[in-house]
Design a protein around this nucleic acid. Structure first.
Lengths: 255, 255
DNA sequence: GCATGCATTTCGTAC
DNA sequence: GTACGAAGTGCATGC
C-alpha cells in the first residue's frame, strides 16, 4: 500500500501528484474547487463549487458533489485521462471513443490532493437477483407448485425471451415470468405477450408471474387476463458454490 | 471550506474523525483496508481489501474499489450512518427503512481519514435527453416532416403512454416514439403496440420511430411492419432558459 | 407514500 | 464490437 497526499498543494504540486498517480496506475482523489464540462452522449456544465474528484486505475473518472448518491459527472472505465496547466489552472481531461465523449475539470483551488495504490483482489459476492430465482426453480421446481416441471430457460419468441417455460402436473404449457423485485403492470403485459405467442396451442397455456410481490394494478390486470401470480423471494445465500449442503450433495434422487 | 485529514490514524482517531464529520454534516472520505457486508434488497459480502469510503452529508454512503465506475456497495441518501469500535475495529453502519437495508464496513487499517465541508450551491445544467427532443418537436414540428402537427404528448393507451401523437399533412394519425439514444427492436415493438391500439381506425395510422439512429435489426423490423424511422438528434443547448434567441423571442407568430 | 419511465444509465453476456 | 436485458439500478414526476 502506498499513499501520497498533500493539503493545500499549489498548482504545480497538484499536477505532479496527478501525473504520478496516473503513471503509477493509482487511485487519485482530489478535493477541490472546480468547474466541470461534459460533452458526449449529452452535454453539461457545472459552475464553481467544492467537489471530490476520483480517477481510478482503470480510467474511471468520477466527480462527486457533497450530495446525492450518484456522481454529478463521470466517465466510464477505459477513459484516457490527462492533466495539464492552462491559464494558471490545473485542467483534467478525460476522453474516450465509442461513444466519443469528453469530460473536463478546471481546478481553481485544491484542498487536498492524493493518490494511493492499494491491494484488493476480492470481488463482491452478491445474491438475490433474478438469475438466482431461475436457478432455484430449476433446482427445486416445487417452489412454483407441486408437479411443475421446467423444460427450458430463455426460450426465444418473437416477443422476446421467456424466462422459464415448463409444464404443470396436468401437462399444460406454463410460462413463468420472473421478477426479483415487486412486479408492475409492465411485467403482466410482457407475460401476456408471451402467452399470446402460443394462442394457436390446443391445450390451455398458463401465464404465471413469479415475484416477491406485485403492485395492486398488476394483480388486477393478472385477474382480468386470467393469469396467475406466485409469490417467490429470490434466494439470498452467499457462497452457495462453496458450501456443500445435504440437499446439493444427495440431489433429488432420494425424494 | 474546512478540511480535517490524517494519515495512518489509529482506531480511536478514525472514530473521532468520522464522528466529527457526521456531526458537522461534512463529507467524510476514508481510505482503508476493510470488509463490507450488505443486507437489504439483496445480500452481499466483500472480503478484505483497500477501498475508498465516502459518507456524504445527505446520508449517501458509498464504497469504491480501485476499479469500475460504479461503487461496489452503497446506500442512498437519507441513510442513518453511525460508527463505533467493535473488537478493536472501527465499524461503520448505515441503515435505512423502506426498503429496510443495512450496510456495514469493518475497518482493519486506515490509510487516510478525512472530512471536509465545502461550498457548492451550483447544480448541473444538462441537455440532450428525450424530453428535450419532445420540446423541440413541439416547438418546431417540421423537424419531423413538412406539415406535421403534434396534438398531444404522453397520450395514454392501454399499452402505455405514446410520446407524441399528431397528424401529418394529409391528416393521417401519426404516432411518434422518441428515443434519445440508438433505438433497438424493443422500441419498434413498443411502437407497433401503440399503432395497434388504433387498429379500428378508418384512415391510415403511421408509426414513426424518432431517434438519432437505429440498430440494423430495428430497421429491418420497421420495414417489415411498414413503419418509419426519422433520424433526429436530441438538442444539446445548455442554459436555453437563460438565453433569449431571436427565435424564442419572436416565437413562430411571424412565420 | 407508491407507481411509472428515463438515464451521459452501467454492467454483464451472447453473438 | 454490437445488441440485449437486468439492476441492491437511481431519480424525477405524477398521483
Amino acid at each position: 500500500m502506498k499513499l501520497v497526499e498533500e493539503k493545500n498543494p499549489d498548482t504545480q504540486r497538484v499536477l505532479e501528484i496527478i501525473n504520478e498517480g496516473l503513471s503509477k496506475r493509482a487511485v487519485i482523489t482530489i478535493m477541490a474547487s472546480c468547474r466541470v464540462y461534459y460533452d458526449g452522449r449529452a452535454v453539461s456544465r457545472l459552475e464553481l463549487g467544492d467537489r471530490i474528484i476520483m480517477i481510478k486505475s482503470d480510467g474511471s473518472f468520477i466527480i462527486h458533489q457533497d450530495r446525492n448518491l450518484e456522481p454529478v459527472n463521470w466517465q466510464p472505465p477505459k477513459t484516457k485521462v490527462a492533466a495539464d496547466i492552462y491559464q494558471g489552472m490545473v485542467k483534467i481531461k478525460g476522453v474516450r471513443r465509442n461513444p466519443h465523449e469528453k469530460l473536463e475539470v478546471e481546478i481553481l483551488n485544491t484542498h487536498l490532493a492524493s493518490y494511493f495504490i492499494g491491494e484488493d483482489s476480492e470481488s463482491l459476492e452478491l445474491a438475490g437477483y433474478e438469475a438466482d430465482m431461475g436457478d432455484l426453480i430449476f433446482k427445486d421446481p416445487e417452489v412454483i407448485e407441486k408437479g411443475f416441471r421446467p423444460t427450458s430457460r430463455e426460450y426465444h419468441t418473437t416477443q422476446g425471451f421467456i424466462d422459464i417455460l415448463g409444464k404443470d402436473q396436468n401437462g399444460n404449457l406454463t410460462i413463468l415470468e420472473l421478477k426479483s423485485r415487486k412486479a408492475g403492470t409492465n411485467a403482466v403485459k410482457q407475460l401476456r405477450r408471451y402467452v399470446d405467442c402460443f394462442s394457436d396451442h390446443k391445450e390451455e397455456v398458463r401465464g404465471v408471474l413469479v415475484a416477491p410481490s406485485v403492485t395492486d394494478d398488476a394483480r388486477e390486470l393478472l385477474e382480468e387476463q386470467k393469469m396467475e401470480f406466485k409469490a417467490l423471494e429470490p434466494p439470498r445465500e452467499l457462497g452457495k458454490d462453496k458450501v456443500v449442503t445435504l440437499e446439493s450433495f444427495f440431489g433429488r434422487s432420494s425424494s
